[in-house]
Nucleic acid binder design. Structure first.
Lengths: 106, 106
DNA sequence: TCGTGATATTGCAATATTACGATAATAGTG
DNA sequence: CACTATTATCGTAATATTGCAATATCACGA
């Protein structure tokens, strides 16, 4: 085998793990942090983070697929900006998980 | 290459990603949830979650390495229990990241 | 529409993760 | 000490992730 057997898991647990995966790589954390300071384009992030354009673009896709990005075209480049509402949803989902886990504990 | 190039990343970003990784698999989320309801042994989790004993043990190691477990021997089995203080630390680290990210955003 | 700069995608290689069977180690019981 | 039940580890296979070079696509300006 090797792949995660999603069918056996609770949907809620899958949801939490999907959210967590977005933050489970330092480059993606760095991208989120950077975009929170200032919206920016792919090349900005390439310079700041030090990975190739292709790799940064891939990470942006992961973050974007999670619904955390707005993109707009500005001149020849595409500007990325955080979707704060979505980020807040993520924070609340995780907090809710932490709270329940904490409160029920032995 | 293929492996994460840790050397280029901020320690703080690496820390966040390490925390997130613990929650980045539904089986580990399920284990944490289950242990929050009731402390239990490996075989309990095998039954509840539906993965093999070896796999559950592996996930327990990941969770344990992150400092989230206490273990004690009770009869022939080993009882696992959540380290709530550590879990709270994780919650706070993530919340701090979310807060900073949110407050700085464009 | 053609060219240019920026971003996305493709293809590939390296590494990591997930899962399980088999087996070893461990702790309590008789 | 042997026996048993439980858990950890090893070996291995399958899948996923990460990263980059090369290339394709896209959006704008001339």
């Amino acid at each position: 085998m090797g792949a995660t057997r999603l069918k056996i898991h609770d949907q809620n647990h899958i949801d939490i793990s999907r959210i967590a995966k977005v933050f489970a790589h330092p480059a993606r954390v760095a991208i989120l942090k950077e975009l929170s300071v200032q919206e920016g384009c792919c090349n900005d992030l390439v310079e700041v983070i030090g990975l190739s354009q292709a790799t940064i673009s891939q990470h942006l896709t992961v973050i974007g697929d999670a619904g955390l990005l707005y993109g707009s075209h500005k001149g020849k480049q595409r500007n990325y900006c955080l979707n704060i509402e979505r980020l807040e949803e993520f924070r609340q989902s995780l907090n809710s998980f932490f709270s329940k886990t904490k409160s029920n504990c032995c």
